[in-house]
Amino acid sequence: MDRSIEIAVNGTRHAFAVDDRRSLLDVLRSDLGITSPKYGCGLAQCGACTVLVDGAPARSCVLRAAKADGAAVTTLEGLADAATGALHPVQQGFVEAAGAQCGYCLNGMIMSALALLSANPDPREDDVRSALRHNLCRCGTHAEIVASVMRAAELMREAAGNPARDDAAPAERAAVVSKAREGAPA
């Protein structure tokens, strides 16, 4: 059954009628041309479709668009600074630490990392691994992805003017930074 809904995607409002059984993922990709969320499994198992709905991470393959009526949706396309084009620190972290091979899982990794870092701006590597435990990467890019999130955390703290972590083990931090730097442009 069609139903009229209104959602804001990356700040742009869209009002339209939609079959109330269609997933938000399908509607974003097919109707709105927002292709950063990917179809991977359709069953909330892989994370490739993750978007933010009113700031909270959501697996858009199991969220019907009609259920998101009235919500503000954020996708990868909406993370960079609209005025300057500057990458969001999380995106920057993934570029610097090369957090992708094929990159099909990347959208889910970045979106989940955003969710993690907004709850825990100063994670340890184990926190990152735990937060990403339901995001699948078949290319085996796990090490680079963890390094990317650690680098992103650092960039976000710098941007917030709070680079130091009180309880950080200095050795671990140094390792993370150098790992991230290994992947930085030569």
Partner: peptide, 16 residues
Amino acid sequence: RSAARVDLPAKVTGSH
């Protein structure tokens, strides 16, 4: 020498 992946900037913004 290590070179950064040429495809990554487009991939992190969803435009690839």
